[in-house]
């Protein structure tokens, strides 16, 4: 669902924020469990945000889901 909304909004140039979920360990930014890939980060060495601390709401263009 989020993926579809993200694609649609980006195609139409509509600003879009999405609220993500990921399985969590600590919920406070310590365990680095809840990773979500940063958009445009290199494929060989992908970089991550952490949903519990950096999110849960992200600009759709900031993340890759």
């Amino acid at each position: 669902m989020l993926k579809a909304v993200k694609e649609l909004a980006e195609k139409q140039n509509i600003p879009c924020q999405i609220s993500l979920e990921e399985k969590m360990g600590c919920g406070i930014g310590a365990c680095l469990g809840c990773a979500v890939k940063k958009a445009q980060s290199p494929k060989e060495a992908p970089e991550y945000y952490h949903v519990c601390k950096g999110g849960p709401v992200f600009k759709s263009t900031d993340v890759e889901i």
Partner: peptide
């Protein structure tokens, strides 16, 4: 946290999940 000579980005998600009386993790030393 496990610290290395150079920064590490860690593994792809999902990295953790719950199990009976415990959990699994594969953070990948981010």
């Amino acid at each position: 946290k496990g610290t290395s000579l150079k920064p590490k980005n860690g593994n792809k998600p999902p990295r953790v999940c719950e199990t009976a009386s415990g959990m699994l993790n594969s953070i990948g030393l981010q």
